[in-house]
Simulated assay, not measured.
Amino acid sequence: MTWWFKARRGHLLLPLAVVLFAVGLYVVQSNTVLLPSLTGSPRIALSLFVPIPLLALLMAALESRLPAAEVSGVRSMTRLDNTLVTAVLAAAVLCSVLVAAVQGSAQATTGGRNAMFLTGLMLLGRAWGGQAAVMIPVGWLVTVVLIGFRGNLPYFWTVIALPPDSVSAAAASLVAFIVGLAAQIRSSRKTA
């Protein structure tokens, strides 16, 4: 297991990912920006963009592998990869809760929820597109900014733009994450 973790560069990439995520959430706080949109003039929370470095480093860790050795090996790496992803996301959710407690604002908790949703999308795309799937969360963010608002109110399908107390956004994030982990099972034994 130690070799697996070192092959994934987990000791370097994952602590950096979690630190960047926590610092990003703390720095942006509850700040919003006005971005161009096709369907309104929404004020977008900067915290929507904080999970992107976390996802990029997570994908780099997952793709830092020796595919031929893993496919020919007796032991499947799927369980270990899913445990790695779950641990990183648990750390991200914990960081978002801690930052929200320090700031006294619930807005930071959306960072962990959004990271779960976007990770699920990324892992689902990774099953078919490989490393290029790291761009799926970025595409989702651009789509939400461009057509995800009616005036200044987000549509229900955006998930990541919904308020921190949205139960449907939390449920959709959890479902997307679980589906992404299931898709990870399919993609982890491929060599290409």
Rank of each mutant, 00 (worst) to 15 (best):
138 V>R: 01
73 G>K: 02
142 V>D: 10
79 R>N: 12
40 G>K: 09
186 R>V: 14
128 W>M: 10
76 S>N: 07
113 R>N: 11
89 L>G: 00
25 L>Y: 10
32 T>E: 15
120 G>P: 01
9 R>S: 13
12 L>F: 15
177 F>Q: 04
24 G>F: 07
162 L>A: 08
34 L>T: 13
62 L>V: 01
122 M>S: 06
26 Y>W: 15
147 I>S: 10
161 A>M: 02
145 V>P: 07
66 L>A: 14
185 I>P: 01
30 S>Q: 13
3 W>L: 13
164 P>G: 00
5 F>A: 12
154 P>R: 03
78 T>L: 10
99 V>N: 03
77 M>D: 12
156 F>D: 15
122 M>Q: 13
152 N>E: 15
17 A>V: 06
120 G>A: 06
127 A>L: 01
77 M>E: 13
178 I>S: 08
144 V>W: 06
96 S>L: 06
94 L>K: 07
32 T>C: 07
124 L>H: 08
31 N>I: 04
98 L>M: 13
134 V>M: 09
23 V>S: 02
65 R>N: 11
185 I>T: 15
161 A>G: 09
180 G>V: 00
158 T>R: 00
188 S>V: 02
82 N>V: 11
102 V>E: 15
139 G>P: 01
87 A>C: 12
6 K>H: 14
7 A>K: 12
41 S>T: 12
123 L>I: 04
31 N>G: 08
50 V>C: 00
43 R>H: 13
108 A>K: 02
145 V>L: 05
163 P>L: 11
168 S>K: 04
85 V>G: 10
191 T>F: 15
83 T>Q: 15
133 A>D: 01
101 A>C: 02
13 L>T: 07
161 A>Y: 08
111 G>Y: 04
30 S>D: 15
4 W>L: 15
184 Q>W: 07
192 A>F: 15
47 S>Y: 13
69 A>W: 12
30 S>P: 03
159 V>D: 06
137 P>G: 09
34 L>Q: 14
23 V>H: 07
163 P>Q: 03
1 M>R: 13
140 W>N: 01
159 V>T: 12
158 T>H: 04
78 T>A: 15
116 M>Y: 12
181 L>T: 01
21 F>V: 03
172 A>W: 06
118 L>I: 04
30 S>V: 11
101 A>D: 08
35 L>P: 04
60 A>I: 03
17 A>N: 05
149 F>V: 03
182 A>K: 10
153 L>P: 02
184 Q>S: 15
153 L>T: 14
190 K>D: 14
3 W>P: 03
113 R>S: 03
45 A>G: 11
64 S>G: 03
144 V>K: 00
58 L>Q: 08
46 L>C: 05
83 T>P: 02
76 S>L: 09
150 R>C: 10
167 V>F: 13
190 K>T: 12
35 L>Q: 08
144 V>H: 03
96 S>H: 02
39 T>E: 05
73 G>Y: 11
174 L>F: 09
88 V>L: 09
173 S>F: 09
53 P>T: 08
87 A>H: 09
158 T>G: 10
161 A>H: 09
127 A>Q: 07
27 V>D: 06
114 N>F: 07
164 P>I: 00
98 L>G: 07
160 I>M: 11
133 A>Y: 06
108 A>E: 06
152 N>G: 13
143 T>C: 13
169 A>Y: 08
121 L>F: 04
183 A>R: 12
47 S>G: 14
70 E>V: 04
99 V>A: 05
147 I>L: 11
2 T>L: 14
145 V>G: 02
